[in-house]
Each structure stands twice: as C-alpha cells, then as structure tokens.
Amino acid sequence: MSSQRAEPTKMKHKPQPWWSNPRARQRLIPFALIAPAFLVVFALAAYSFVWLVYLSTQDLTFGQPVHEGRPVGLANYIWLLTNSGSIFWISVRTTAIHVLGTTLPELLLGFAIALLLNRQMRGGSLLTAVLIIPIVLMPSMVGLVARLYFTYDGLVNFFVETFTGSRFNWSGPERALTSVILVDIWEWTPFFILILLAGLQTLPREPYEAALVDGASRWQSFRFITLPMMFPLILTALVLRLMDVLRIFDVIYVMFGGGPGSATTTLPLLTYRTTLVQEYVGRGSAVSIMLIIIIVTLTYLLIQLRARVTHQP
C-alpha cells in the first residue's frame, strides 16, 4: 500500500474490497455470527409459507401430484368462510371454548395452589419438583392413556361414581370437549403454579410489613399488594399459555381425532381433517393460513396490551 502511494505516477488506486477494511469487518462480526441461525430459520419458514400460500390457492386432492392442481384464486377461503357446508366458524367457536375453558381455570387454580405452596413448609421444594412431571410427559401417550381413563368403565368414572353415584359418557358429543379440557387442566395447571410461585417468592417483604403495621387484614394485603405486584407476571403466563393452547393437536387427535362428529374439531384439528380426511389440500392450507394469522394477530395484540397495562416493553 505505502509503496503504491509513494509513486508519483497516475497509477490507478487499486479498488480494495470493502470487507478488507478492519472497521467494516468489526461491524460485520455480529451479523456473521447470526447468519447461520437466521438463514436456517427464516429460509425454512419462508419456503414453507410460500408453499402454503401456493397450495391454498389450488384445487388439489391429497395424493394427486402437485402439478395437477388447478389454480382457483381465493375460492378456498371464500368457501370456508361462507359456504353452509363449511364448519370453519363452528371450529372457531370450539377453539374459543377450548382456549377459554383451559386457560382461565388453569390460571385460577394455579394461582391458588401457588399461594398454598408459597407458605413455609417442609418438603415444599419436593412438591414443586413433582409438579414438573405432567408438563414433560409425551402428549401422544397422555392422550392415549386419557382415552382409557375416560372410557365408560374408566378411572374417571370410577371416581365420579364414588362421589356422585352416577357415571357420565365422557366420549359422547356433549362431553368430549370437556374431557379434552380436563386433561389439559391436569397437564398445564402446573405451568401456572410454577411460574406464579417463582413470582411470589421474589416479592419484596417491606410492603407487607408496612401493611401489617397499618392494621391491614390478610385479604386486604393480598388484594392491594400481592395482586397488583403479580399482575404483569399473570399476564405473561396467560399470553404464553394462550399461544400454546391454540396449537394443541396431539392430545385431541389421539383422544378423539376431532370427533365425535365435530365436537373436538379445534382449528388445528380442522387443518388435519380438511387436508387428510376430506383430502382437500387447498382448503386445508387455507385453514392453516387463517390459523397462523389468528395466532400472530392475537400474540401481537396481547403483547401490546401487556405493554400498556404494565408500562414496560
């Protein structure tokens, strides 16, 4: 370099590649480190989404070669949203019941049990550890075992009969969704217990001491100290759980496959049934896309809500 500069001739400055500049290099390091992860994840997602969008505009039967599909534009979406033979809106309703029927009881039950576990007692950490178990069990096996437990002669009816004297048909069209919800409550109430207990254990002591001095009752210190301080965490847990319930497929598929009739056909199950059972690949893909839109929109709205309520990003 220096020898070039020393020469008085009008020698052309050799164009240096921009990456040889050490400054630019330094600036590139963080991106270079992220590049592999970014490429794998975003390429895989983009490739799948392009395919999904393409399939959702085709009239294609499952098993047919893809190039034999007939482009139909938005017809699949319109059919799903407006045709009287479509169970899309019924499925949305089932999904809403499923989501609310699982998350709200799980939250209330989970908070109550977290408060119980937050008391000083011997063996408390052992009890908390045990609660991890339902969360990490293989969902397909949980579904299969639940199917046996919920049969007419099953374990659940044994307890129900002991306490009430009569048995229920847990797999009939009226109660199948309830069975699915009960299994989820068993599996995922510990999720709320563990998160909320972790939160309770980090609450500062001073406000409680001050409240005690001021003569507040236990209910008052719960209502005016614990609840407000726990609120951001409660919202976080609720958002995470809500997102997860919206994609449950395995347990429902194994227990009832979306049936009987369409009693347990939530949106993830509707994707499967439209694509593989009815063999309408186009309509099934359209359901998938609408499910993704619902999840992304809800996630975004909930994160916004959480930011507004808790005044933190």
Partner: peptide, 12 residues
C-alpha cells in the same frame, strides 16, 4: 416464527 404451529405448516 417459534410461535407458528407445527400442524399448520406440516402439510406444506
């Protein structure tokens, strides 16, 4: 992207 349900892109 982590939030995308597996079942929704599995057929793609």
């Amino acid at each position: 992207l982590q939030m995308v349900p597996g079942i929704s892109i599995v057929f793609a």
